[in-house]
Design a protein around this nucleic acid. Structure first.
Length: 913
DNA sequence: ACCCTGCATGTGCAA
DNA sequence: TGCACATGCAGGGTC
């Protein structure tokens, strides 16, 4: 094949990043594929110093953006895309943008003007070879020159600016004004050039950098600069598409090799980007900054390979990067939305200290049905087929996946035939989903540990998880619902903090976009500036917490659709968030965080602090009225309190109820108690922090039946031979229950027999023993009902009797047919109301002064220690019900002594006893 | 009555 | 236009 200009082949390339210095011949592994191109190939990236995947994520967002309208990446013209009618009015760019017809036409008139792909940053790559011609520059007018390295079939493309590009696995083919890949059948490899004329006025300008200026500046194509970049999404999109790409396009399509060269996004190293950020601070709009900030997130995703030098790794371990799919069957077809966006921190977390390598496979934003109670997680077909073991039968096979905590989950990986295709699902995910507290909009990430091939899953909480009905979303989108919801008991989360504290998750954003797409023909966003947005980055529950009743206000409790509202005559006070705790002496404290130094300070209980508060405002404690004063709580105490405070908030959310401040007290207390149980409070020993997303007293790693038993249906079952307290107790109760059931059954049979006899002898005179038998049973029934009534009454008096047996009532109902007049049922509200009373009430009622003293030997200085720790976790109401049903008499007495604080605790406490 | 299971269907996206 | 996927639904099983 003739080389244009007779240029010698490229023999090697070197990354210009001095910290990287990667040298490769193109086949030595220093290069790898980047983002997929429309044509099926992949961009080519330097593997060592790392180039920006985030660019693609960025573009991907815009790909996912409103499907109807997109902006031309060159002129900014708004194009209607997607429908058949518009098919010829635009052209898709491999880089993710679109190009309008005008620009397509104009582009042919321009000479090839490209932005050097790699030169804006220090990571940029330069080619060097035997021939200095490569470096000295070889200009071409219409089409890039192609240089082929005969050894590795890499092709360097030198553009007008003397910046070469490389294409792997191609042959120099025809030149044309359009740079586009052309697929060549039957093994022929050819490339077709698509005009990459870029309006650098849009795109390249922000990327004028030191390194770039040091090189030959690219030519710019002017465009209208008068557009306000904040309103012109073109800018943002263009920013991401500023450079001509060097791309590697190898599609595994039989024997066919495909190669691509296309327009590409600018590649920036983080360091350079930061430098640029300084340089461009004055010229970029906030919107642009926002976009640029994404470039800061770029780092080389070293996928599934051993540790290599990565200059950004240590600097930005938390950066969320869309990693290209790992090797797998058909991975090329993997949609970018499934690319795992996993940070090194998370990878580190998964891999622990081991030397194993984590290969991120894919991720998925949980849909409502994924996170629902059905327990089925729909897997993207391509991902399932690429990374999970192949299955031929619909029944599939069991699959064990380990979570980040090392816990193994057993799922059934299977598929359903669907429209001549397959729909892959993971069944039995409910326990896992619940354990990880995942909900729709959150993201689960699947990875593989090498060596070994073990599957691991991580998760990412959505920053903008929304499960509101569309109407509410719409209202929120219009800003109309905000205040309304703040004053309501909406139990939906609008903002669950990212576990890793990262920025909003793209997938979740897409989820949001998707959810709100049907609201109307136009997308709406509640207009707020960035500070407002920061202020509003809280959940509805948090917002509720910020609203405190006026100090003089006395609430009236009203029930609206089974939700309990505190109704005040006076408007609520907008307060700063604080945490309530109870000391061993029973005294309550309020803790509040200084806005300046972030230290937590103790405040009197009755103080309601305005939205901003600093140590200097602390007039109640002269010792802590300065930010320099040490914090009263030790870091461990603080950590425990905060963790459990978060836990409490989550539980509030899961109950879907607005719980009053007293409940917060109890929960905070519970938090401290939990911490105390694990030796975190009052014991400055080495006990590790017991983090759990489950019941506060659940021990990490606990596999007792209540911890792992799914609410129903399939799923991992507890080892029947387990001898843990809970299991033993449950078994004992089950035995008792069965005995009772047997007894009732025999009674019933006896009654049936009696009825028959009574019917046969109905003409018998009254007083007959036989005819009175059912009445005798009625007496029994009444007696039982009295007992039940007593229990309900007892409950309403404030004693939760978890022995209350709903099944017993059912039995009687079944036995006697028509329901009878009954007292108000023991509703969940009632239970919660009682359960939420603070522990000090309980202690008073039970004549206790300090549980801490009794139980923990007074080891806690600031916390009240709860009853003995038991293995448990926050359970669904279903589980609670089950546990309640299975109580036996000996546990009842314990319940009344112990289980008055929280409903779910009672079960565990009794179990432990 | 509730749950599980398997399948069907509608919608949106990508080719 | 076809495919992927979210979700609805019906039927059977279990509590």
């Amino acid at each position: 094949m003739a080389m244009p200009g007779g240029v010698a082949p490229v023999v090697a390339m070197r990354c210009t990043n001095p910290a990287c210095g990667a040298t490769a011949t193109g086949g030595g592994g220093d290069w790898r594929k980047g983002w997929p191109l429309r044509s099926g190939g992949f961009a080519l990236l330097c593997d060592k110093c790392g180039l920006a995947y985030e660019q693609f994520v960025f573009c991907d967002i815009f790909h996912q953006k409103e499907s109807g309208w997109r902006d031309c990446s060159f002129c900014g013209k708004r194009l209607h895309c997607g429908c058949v009618a518009s098919k010829n009015s635009y052209d898709l760019l491999d880089s993710g943008g679109v190009q309008c017809v005008s620009c397509m036409k104009n582009s042919t008139a321009h000479s090839v003007t490209v932005v050097p792909k790699l030169f804006p940053c220090q990571n940029n790559l330069r080619f060097f070879g035997k021939s200095d011609e490569l470096l000295s520059g070889r200009k071409f007018e219409q089409s890039p020159s192609l240089m082929l390295d005969p050894r590795n079939e890499d092709i360097a493309i030198v553009n007008k600016s003397n910046h070469p590009f490389m294409v792997k696995g191609i042959e120099a083919g025809q030149s044309s004004s359009i740079l586009r890949q052309k697929e060549i059948e039957n093994g022929a490899r050819q490339i077709k050039w698509e005009q990459p004329t870029l309006s650098i006025g849009d795109m390249g300008r922000p990327f004028l950098t030191r390194s770039q200026s040091a090189l030959e500046p690219p030519q710019y194509t002017r465009r209208d600069d008068n557009k306000d970049p904040t309103t012109d999404s073109t800018t943002s999109e263009s920013i991401s598409e500023a450079c001509l790409s060097m791309s590697l396009g190898i599609a595994h399509n039989g024997n066919r090799m495909e190669a691509t060269s296309t327009v590409e996004r600018p590649i920036l190293s983080p360091t350079t980007a930061i430098a640029e950020g300084r340089e461009l601070t004055t010229t970029l709009s906030p919107f642009q900054h926002a976009q640029r900030a994404r470039h800061f997130l770029t780092r080389p995703p070293r996928v599934g390979e051993g540790a290599v030098f990565d200059p950004t790794k240590d600097i930005f371990p938390h950066l969320r990067v869309a990693r290209p799919p790992a090797e797998g069957r058909g991975r090329n077809q993997l949609l970018p939305r499934y690319w795992p966006r996993i940070t090194d921190q998370e990878l580190q977390q998964i891999s622990g200290d081991s030397n194993s390598t984590i290969v991120p496979l894919f991720e998925k934003v949980l849909s409502a049905s994924d996170a629902g109670r059905i327990g089925r997680l729909v897997l993207p077909k391509a991902c399932a087929e690429a990374y999970f073991p192949p299955i031929s039968q619909p029944e599939g096979r069991p699959l064990t996946i380990q979570d980040a905590r090392g816990k193994e989950w057993h799922f059934q990986f299977r598929f359903w035939p669907n429209n001549n295709s397959r729909m892959y699902v993971l069944e039995g995910v409910t326990p896992c989903i619940q354990s990880l507290q995942l909900q729709a909009g959150d993201t689960v990430t699947f990875s593989r540990i090498e060596p070994g091939g073990k599957l691991v899953m991580g998760f990412r909480k959505a920053t903008n998880t929304v499960s509101l009905p569309d109407s509410q979303i719409s209202a929120i989108a219009n800003g109309s619902l905000l205040s309304e919801t703040l004053f309501s008991t909406a139990n939906e989360n609008l903002g669950v903090a990212d576990k890793f504290g990262s920025r909003p998750d793209e997938g979740s954003l897409q989820f949001l976009q998707k959810r709100s797409r049907n609201i109307g023909s136009k997308s709406r966003r509640f207009l707020m500036d960035s500070e407002d947005a920061m202020e509003l980055k809280l959940t509805w529950e948090e917002a509720q917490e910020l609203l405190r009743p006026a100090p003089t206000a006395k609430p009236t409790i009203v029930m609206i659709e089974d939700y309990e509202f505190e109704e005040y005559d006076e408007p609520p006070v907008f307060a700063k968030r604080s945490i309530f705790t109870i000391r061993a002496t029973g005294e309550q404290d309020q803790w509040i965080q200084c806005d300046d130094c972030s230290k937590w300070r103790r405040l009197p209980l009755t103080i309601i602090v305005a939205s901003k508060w600093t140590c200097t405002d602390n007039s109640w404690d002269p010792k802590s009225c300065s930010c320099s004063a040490p914090e009263e709580l030790t870091p461990k105490e603080l950590q425990s309190v905060l963790q459990q405070y978060e836990e409490m908030r989550r539980r509030k959310g899961s109950y879907g109820l607005k719980l009053n401040v007293a409940e917060m007290d109890a929960s905070s207390l519970d938090a401290l108690a939990t911490a105390a149980v694990f030796g975190d409070v009052g014991n400055q020993g080495t006990a590790s922090v017991a983090t759990t997303t489950k019941h506060p007293r659940h021990r990490p790693g606990c596999t007792c039946i209540v911890c792992i038993q799914p609410p129903s249906g399939k799923g991992p079952k507890h080892n029947p031979a387990c001898t843990c307290n809970v299991c033993m107790t449950v078994r004992r109760r089950f035995k008792t229950l069965m005995m009772r059931k047997k007894q009732r059954q025999s009674e019933r049979e006896e009654a049936e027999a009696s009825k028959k006899i009574a019917w046969v002898n109905r003409d018998e005179p009254e007083g007959s023993n036989l005819s009175r038998s059912p009445q005798t049973l009625d007496t029994t029934r009444d007696s039982s009902d009295v007992t039940m009534l007593d229990k309900v009454a007892d409950m309403n008096k404030g004693h939760i009797d978890l022995n209350f047996h709903p099944a017993a009532r059912d039995d009687h109902q079944g036995q006697h047919g028509a329901p009878q007049a009954r007292p108000p049922p023991a509703s969940m509200m009632g239970l919660l109301e009682v359960a939420n009373r603070p522990l000090d009430n309980y202690m008073k009622q039970n004549g206790l002064t300090s549980l801490a003293g009794e139980q923990a030997g007074g080891s806690s200085s600031t916390a009240t220690v709860p009853p003995a720790p038991v293995e448990s976790e926050e359970r669904t109401s279903n589980e609670v019900r089950v546990a309640s049903v299975e109580r036996e008499p000996e546990a009842m007495a314990v319940d009344e002594a112990v289980g008055d604080n929280q409903q779910d605790k009672g079960v565990d406490d009794a179990a432990a006893t």
